[in-house]
Amino acid sequence: MITVTTIVLAGALAALMLWKPEVTHTNGGKVLAFVSLFVFPMLAAFGGLNQHVERSKKTVFCTSCHAMNDYGKSLRIDDPTHLPAAHWQNGRVPREDACFTCHTDYTMYGDYKAKLRGLRHVWVQYLGTIPKTIKLYTPYNNRECLHCHEGARSYEEASPHKADDVGFARLTKNEVSCLTSGCHDQVHDVKGLSKAALWNPEPQSEAKLGKE
């Protein structure tokens, strides 16, 4: 709403400059021109950028590209061992920000890194070649899982996590992967999607889930 107000105000001020540029003959007019043609346009541009970045965190946004359709559908796989589906269907991640919640880096500049990677995806979508198999740039870091699960009773009390060959310390140091050590390895099974049963929530739940 603030962004829209800023754009409207910036537009009105720019229109005033277009209509009566002679207002700049006075000192007050010079200040008005500076506000109209520099301050407000920059504020509106910053606000717009902020809005677009916030929108790009939405699941609907991520799955709006054809290459990501199946990844969005995989959130509906009716199998509790399928990790992304179990997280999405049980509300363990905010459903409308599901992709970003798991695929950002929980570091100081992680969000910016994730957005820069997103720009690369846009580049590939329009000007590059989309690979047949979509892979992560780097192996999935336990840090992203532990951002939510560390300290949770279900995580702390699970006996496999306490076992000698795993251990909390090794999980925290990312020495044993949550995903590729054979424990939670069912992620985004897009190849098996055609055979998988999909969860169809009740209409009222559907409305809460959004259109993923």
Binding site: I7, A10, G11, A14, A15, L18, L37, P41, A45
Partner: peptide, 11 residues
């Protein structure tokens, strides 16, 4: 005026 037109179009 040119600047205003460009800014308006951009907005």
């Amino acid at each position: 005026r040119i600047a205003a037109v460009l800014v308006l179009a951009g907005l």
